[in-house]
Amino acid sequence: MNRRSSLNSKLTVSPYIIWAALFIIAPLFFVVYYSFTTSAGDFTLENVQALSKYLPTFLRSIWFGIEATLICLIIAFPTAYIIAQKTDKIQRTMVMLVMLPMWMSFLIRTYSWMAILQDTGIINTFLTKLGIHPVHMINTGGAVILGMVYNFLPYMILPIYSVMAKLDYSMVEACQDLGGNRLTVIRKCIIPLSLPGIVSGVTMVFVPSVSTFYISQKLGGGSFDLIGDVIERQFQQSYNYNLGAALSLVLMILILISMAFMNKFSDEGEIVI
């Protein structure tokens, strides 16, 4: 490569480098910087040490994230499979329906669930009318998980669907041909071949579920604090940027670890379709 073209290529990539520096590297740097300093700017480990207090919150976040991800997976896999079986036209319509809730604000969706789940909400009004004793749903852990599942389900369905739609149907036939019944076909053929979609779906649901805020405040009634809520409070109410940054840093590391774990999964079953 001569000097001119190398200069050109540098010029071409420079906007991206500036972009990355400004919006990815700088914020990361500040998160790390704030984590290890006091509000006066002196180096300290206090923020990190204070984290142990939030261990239960971390564990709850992870646990809720895992539950929400699993439920999403259980719902999304058959849904994606069914969509992928349909004709092109029906597929497009169904995919649009899956994405439809994403066109509404996250806030509004969560508020709607409040209205639905409340003790005097839509479901309970209906139950009372039928003469059935109302069920307490709002402000429970289940409601928080429901909120996560509802909000993040499309992120699970879409990647799985797009892998399944591309799946060469003769693979399924080959599996049947070699003696696989319906269950075997799903277990030995469709699941391993959809693995890349499953991995990205799991990542795309787990990461926002773990770090989400607001859902638990509205649907959990404040008794199911998640790490996202704690971080939000540090910034919005306590103005303790340093502790907030430390919390964010730990969350980020947790997410990176889980993503690395998931990627290892997909590498092993590397698939070229």
Binding site: D168, E173, A174, C175, N181, L193, E270, I271, V272
Partner: peptide, 20 residues
């Protein structure tokens, strides 16, 4: 009788080997 119960096997046009 479904394919998996037949004593017949197929070589598919594009082989349909399992890439995983």
């Amino acid at each position: 009788v479904p394919p998996y119960k037949r004593q017949v096997n197929t070589i598919f046009q594009r082989y349909a080997l399992f890439p995983h």
